[in-house]
């Protein structure tokens, strides 16, 4: 029994190792390709003969890459903030307050989760045209900040919190706002952090909305900027890979710091959702 168990363990490590290798190989190829001189990008050998670290700064000489970067981080940051705050408030109303029509309205929220994004994309685009918000930060941020998903996630989380504390606070004469801000929100922090990670990663990678909203080069977010770079300078695979590699740094950081919250949040959504 122990020997076969050890053999089995070995098999598990081999399978995981093979899979991890498949996962990592494209990223390794990307990093190597990003360091090649232009003359070698079409060579079959993945390893550069000369290591051109200056490729990374060369990206910014061809396109305003820093600007794309800043646009993406600023837009995703604002969307995350607005999503978390408005969703937490709505989730509080849907989970902790009693009022007529609460569950009916919540079901309406849920129903919209099934509607394809493209259905609302077109009217939102025409609305932005009407409001002269094309090509603005407001236009990039505000329509992306109020989906039903965040409200759903936080409502589920708040339903799982004990009500004893906020009832005690209410008896002590605390207002609803105090109960929300000082009692429920601190307890719901893991849920809010999970939502913040989802919202940031989702919006940072968001492509469709910025693609139709952005007209001028200085408003491009990273995904749109990468696409332009690919279209205009596509033969410079080395610089393109350098740009792609740099754009992966923020999600990597968010992932490394938020991993344990992410797993917990997914558990939450799956088990109770």
């Amino acid at each position: 029994m122990p020997r076969s168990g050890r053999l089995k363990d070995l098999g598990v490590y081999v399978a995981l190792g093979a899979f991890a290798l498949t996962t990592l190989a494209p990223f390794a190829w990307m990093l190597l390709a990003s360091l090649k001189p232009l003359a070698e990008v079409e060579s079959a050998n993945p390893v550069p003969t000369v290591w051109k670290f200056e490729n990374y700064s060369a990206v910014a000489e061809q396109v305003p890459f820093g600007r794309y970067f800043a646009n993406s981080v600023v837009v995703a940051g604002w969307v995350t903030l607005l999503t978390c705050l408005s969703s937490a408030m709505a989730a509080f109303a849907f989970s902790r307050l009693r009022w007529r029509g609460r569950d009916a309205l919540f079901r309406l929220y849920l129903a919209t989760l099934m509607i394809p994004g493209v259905v609302t994309m077109i009217p939102n685009y025409t609305l932005m045209v009407r409001l002269h918000l094309l090509d603005t930060y407001t236009g990039l941020i505000v329509p992306a900040s109020f989906g039903a998903f965040g409200t759903f996630l936080l409502r589920q989380f708040m339903l799982g919190l004990p009500t004893a504390l906020d009832e005690a606070a209410r008896l002590d004469g605390a207002t609803h706002w105090h109960v929300f801000w000082d009692v429920v929100l601190p307890l719901a922090r893991p849920g809010v952090i999970t939502l913040a990670i989802f919202a940031f990663l989702g919006n940072y990678g968001s492509f469709y909305w910025p693609l139709v909203m952005v007209k001028s080069p200085h408003m491009r977010t990273l995904p749109v900027g990468l696409l332009t770079f690919d279209t205009v300078y596509g033969r410079q695979t080395n610089l393109l890979m350098a740009a792609a590699a740099m754009s992966l740094v923020p999600p990597l950081l968010v992932f490394l710091f938020g991993q344990r919250f992410l797993v917990r949040g997914i558990q939450l959504g799956a088990v109770k959702g």
Binding site: M89, A90, A93, L97, T112, I122, V142, S145, F146, G147
Partner: peptide
Amino acid sequence: AIGFLAPNLLGFGLFTAGPV
């Protein structure tokens, strides 16, 4: 509840329910 819902409901109505 109306107060807590207002920001989200406004955005939801304007950018999701209305557009549908």
